[in-house]
Amino acid sequence: MAGCEAVLTVRLVRSFEHRNFKPVVFHGVNLDQTVQNFIQLVRDDIATRRGLPPPFKTYAYDTMKIIHQAHGAKTNELVMSLEDDENLILQDNQTLRAAGVANETEVAFFRKEDYGVYKANPKTAW
């Protein structure tokens, strides 16, 4: 594998309250592309990905946050941690590498508005 290509897992989060998410693996990701370009690549891919339920394909995802780095500690939260947003939420104008993304990183892809509502009142429903 080239030094700038990585395997990333993107966790598509449809609902924080219902813990409704689906992980999707991306191979050969260029870490020197911008976060904005990677978001567009993921949107384009999931729109046509086989085996992915339709509600996940058409959801209005707009934000990415690092969940887990390879060989690092994991959170106890089932969907994603609600802490350290200023360091873990990826900024559109940064490259993936500058944002802290490395090989085997797992990132959440979600709608920022949903995250704000859940963070203000982190209750789960069954």
Rank of each mutant, 00 (worst) to 15 (best):
F38L: 02
V10H: 02
P23V: 05
F110V: 04
T34A: 01
T58C: 04
I66L: 14
M1R: 11
N20D: 08
G28H: 10
A2M: 11
A47T: 06
D62Q: 04
V42L: 07
N103I: 11
W126H: 13
V24L: 12
I46Y: 00
G72Q: 14
N20K: 06
K74E: 10
E104A: 12
P55W: 00
Q36I: 03
A102V: 10
E104W: 08
A102F: 07
M64E: 00
Y115I: 05
I67S: 01
H71V: 09
A47Q: 11
N103S: 13
L82N: 07
L82Q: 07
K22M: 13
V13E: 01
E5P: 00
F38R: 00
V29M: 06
A120H: 07
E77S: 12
D84T: 13
S15P: 04
L31D: 04
R111A: 15
R111N: 14
Y61P: 03
L12F: 04
P55Q: 01
K65A: 06
E86P: 04
L78M: 13
Q36S: 14
V25Y: 01
R43T: 09
R19P: 03
F21W: 08
R14I: 02
M64L: 11
G72L: 05
I67Y: 01
V117L: 14
R14K: 12
R11H: 08
W126I: 07
L8R: 01
F26L: 09
A125I: 15
S81F: 03
V42R: 03
V107M: 09
L12K: 02
F110H: 03
H71D: 10
T48L: 07
F38E: 00
L82F: 07
H68A: 03
N103R: 11
L78G: 06
N87C: 09
I67A: 01
N20C: 12
V29W: 04
D85A: 13
T58I: 10
W126V: 07
N20S: 08
S81W: 05
A108Y: 00
C4E: 14
R19G: 08
L82D: 07
V29T: 08
H18G: 12
I89W: 00
E113W: 09
Y118A: 15
I66A: 01
F21Y: 12
A73S: 14
A98M: 15
M64W: 00
D85L: 12
Y59A: 11
V79M: 07
L12Q: 03
A120V: 08
D92F: 11
L31N: 04
